[in-house]
Simulated assay, not measured.
Amino acid sequence: MDMVVVVTAPVRDLSEPVSPASVSFDEIVRGTGRCGDLGLGTRTPASVTLLPRARFTGTRTQKLLGRLFFQLGNIVSSMAFALFLFLAVGPHLFPYQTMTMLTGSMVPTINPGDVAVDTQVSVYDLKPGDVITYRIPVDDNRIVSHRIVSVTGEPDGSLTVQTKGDANPDNDPWKANFPGGTIWRVDTVIPKMGEGIRWFRQPGVAKVAVYVAPALVSLMLLSVIWKPARRKRSEPDPHDVPFTGSGAR
């Protein structure tokens, strides 16, 4: 078994400093040489104890588990940060937007919980088969992502489109007119990425998240601020005496 030598000596005021270069392990144990001159080891002999190294360094399994959890924490936090950048920050910096599908009107093309990534295109580039994201011209003007069934040019130069959800049996009961400019078209669908968003939008979860998220961030900041700094030793501690004997006795 790998062992560690632990040397303890009586605490007393010394007439002069003692350094590892001036005394040896044998002198400490026997109280001879400079240790005898200084009064070390004469009244209360130094004690030598052999302890398993695991008492100081921890078991190999504990080290491996610690490293594993540390790496997993880094991976999870990195993925969460990247997801936050993609969903919340990216649309403000780059020409795209993300929409989380909340209904099944576009199954199986876009399932509930999928995230649709839209880019802007000219309305005059629209054609049947494109999936566009727009506000419907009736009812509550909600935003939908539906497939274009037909495109009709109007005398004033605008375009009128008829849309339909892939899972719906009939065309949408309205037609949307676009006078010009650009419109959002679905280019990519990322499966299941929006499940977390849908879960957080539940009333109870959303209320809890409002209080839990700031608390977690505060705890992380406090742990970083209060983390004790490692003491840098510019010179050896005079009590750290190296073993210089010829062998075990």
Results as ranks from 00 to 15, higher is better:
234 S>D: 13
98 T>N: 04
205 V>S: 01
76 V>M: 13
227 K>D: 06
184 W>C: 01
176 A>N: 01
72 L>I: 15
234 S>P: 01
246 S>W: 09
15 S>G: 15
58 G>H: 13
142 R>I: 02
109 T>S: 14
136 I>C: 07
128 P>C: 11
214 P>T: 05
53 R>I: 08
145 S>R: 04
20 P>F: 08
111 N>R: 12
132 I>Q: 01
180 G>I: 02
61 T>H: 09
219 L>V: 15
222 L>N: 01
3 M>D: 02
53 R>H: 08
247 G>M: 07
165 G>T: 07
165 G>V: 05
22 S>L: 02
197 I>D: 12
50 L>T: 03
174 W>E: 09
21 A>V: 02
77 S>R: 03
107 V>C: 02
124 Y>F: 08
228 P>K: 14
217 V>L: 15
37 D>M: 06
6 V>C: 06
133 T>H: 13
86 F>A: 15
50 L>Y: 14
117 V>T: 05
111 N>Q: 13
84 F>V: 10
6 V>P: 03
15 S>F: 01
205 V>D: 00
213 A>I: 15
19 S>R: 11
67 R>F: 10
187 D>I: 05
69 F>N: 01
137 P>C: 06
111 N>C: 10
73 G>F: 05
165 G>S: 13
3 M>C: 03
151 V>Q: 07
238 P>W: 00
55 R>I: 02
191 P>A: 06
148 I>D: 06
191 P>T: 05
222 L>M: 03
187 D>P: 02
154 E>C: 04
66 G>S: 08
237 D>Q: 10
54 A>T: 13
228 P>N: 12
144 V>W: 15
95 P>D: 10
142 R>L: 04
126 L>Q: 12
224 V>Y: 07
189 V>Y: 12
226 W>A: 12
230 R>L: 11
93 L>R: 13
98 T>C: 09
65 L>N: 04
61 T>P: 04
58 G>L: 11
70 F>Q: 11
85 L>F: 08
166 D>V: 03
199 W>H: 06
70 F>T: 07
59 T>Y: 11
92 H>M: 11
101 M>G: 07
157 G>L: 03
69 F>I: 06
48 V>A: 09
10 P>F: 10
130 D>Q: 10
108 P>R: 11
51 L>Q: 06
13 D>N: 12
145 S>Y: 05
80 A>Y: 11
132 I>T: 03
183 I>Y: 03
31 G>R: 03
163 T>F: 08
146 H>M: 05
107 V>I: 12
124 Y>P: 01
94 F>K: 09
4 V>K: 13
117 V>P: 05
87 L>W: 10
18 V>F: 00
60 R>C: 04
42 T>C: 09
5 V>P: 03
81 F>S: 14
196 G>R: 00
52 P>F: 12
112 P>E: 08
120 Q>T: 11
183 I>N: 03
198 R>T: 09
73 G>K: 08
105 S>Q: 02
43 R>G: 15
63 K>S: 12
36 G>F: 05
193 M>E: 02
167 A>E: 09
111 N>V: 08
169 P>R: 04
66 G>P: 02
243 F>V: 15
9 A>E: 14
225 I>F: 15
247 G>I: 04
109 T>D: 12
48 V>K: 08
146 H>T: 06
11 V>S: 08
5 V>W: 14
226 W>M: 13
109 T>E: 11
161 V>W: 04
